[in-house]
């Protein structure tokens, strides 16, 4: 299996404070990698650095062999690296269908004039996109909600819609920031099944979460961050038994309490 994403020596400091320091890991094709760590470990910052939302102060990010360090997020999305967010994952004012339609932009020709002038080629292509969206919504059980405004959806469905929108961009690698946060146990299970199916369709997944139980279930490998540094990494089975990982989690639990 070839390496899809290679992160080397990634670092970011804010006003002299090191939020992420010298983090390195790989993601191969058809692999689910977990980025875990207690709250404030720098997980979201790491995703922001990789996805181009903020520029790293040090390190190199390679995606499909090309150096993409600091590349703007919209160009990465077109290359096939798409992320979701912890909070805002839907366009609240748009319907479910329109949300996913926006998601397709990164996988479609982006010409300004064909869409404005409604050329025959454009309409053909849009018809295909439409049936692709319908299939995707069907697949995720959102079909009946296609015309519902995203703002009216229950929270769990909004999370699902965010995932659908990201998938509509035909990613090679999808990065999910806390996909199960705030969900009930059943909903979280549903999401984990879904992530497995996404992988089976040939998409690699990077998941960020601090919920060990959820992560242990879905990840092939894990990278553990603590205070912005890489604590350890390896196959899930090894990482969950690592006493240092347990200590990092318990340590913060204590300090929080």
């Amino acid at each position: 299996m070839s390496v899809l994403l290679a992160v080397q020596g990634l670092g970011k400091s804010f006003r002299g404070l090191r939020a992420v320091n010298d983090v390195s890991f790989d993601i191969r094709e058809r692999e689910i990698v977990g980025l875990i760590g207690p709250n404030g470990a720098g997980k979201t910052t790491a995703i922001n650095l990789i996805s181009g939302a903020i520029r790293p102060t040090s390190g190199v990010v390679r995606f499909r062999g090309a150096d993409v360090t600091g590349m703007p997020a919209h160009r990465l999305a077109r290359l096939g690296l798409i992320r979701t967010f912890q909070a805002t994952n839907v366009y609240a004012g748009k319907t479910v269908f329109e949300n996913v339609y926006v998601g397709t932009f990164s996988s479609r020709p982006s010409g300004f004039w064909p869409s404005l002038l409604l050329t025959a080629a454009f309409r053909r292509e849009r018809e295909q996109t439409r049936s692709r969206i319908e299939a995707l919504l069907e697949d995720l059980g959102l079909r009946d909600l296609a015309d519902t405004p995203a703002a009216d959806l229950p929270y769990g469905y909004q999370k699902m819609l965010g995932l659908a929108t990201a998938l509509a961009g035909k990613p090679k690698l999808i990065m999910l920031d806390e996909p199960a946060a705030g969900l009930s146990a059943e909903e979280a299970d549903l999401i984990s099944v879904l992530i497995g199916r996404v992988r089976d369709q040939g998409v690699s997944v990077l998941v960020v979460d601090h919920n060990m139980r959820f992560m242990a279930k879905i990840c092939n490998r894990m990278v553990v961050l603590h205070h912005g540094m890489e604590l350890t990494s390896g196959p899930t089975a090894d990482v969950v038994r690592d006493p240092r990982v347990l200590e990092a989690y318990l340590g913060t639990e204590h300090s929080v309490a």
Partner: peptide, 27 residues
């Protein structure tokens, strides 16, 4: 026509959330 086109949809996406629009491949 502009607002009804794909470009118009990108505009609305930007108004709703810039960071999400950027992550969805909109420049």
């Amino acid at each position: 026509r502009l607002l009804a086109s794909d470009f118009g949809r990108k505009m609305d996406a930007i108004r709703e959330s810039e960071s999400l629009a950027e992550a969805n491949g909109i420049p």
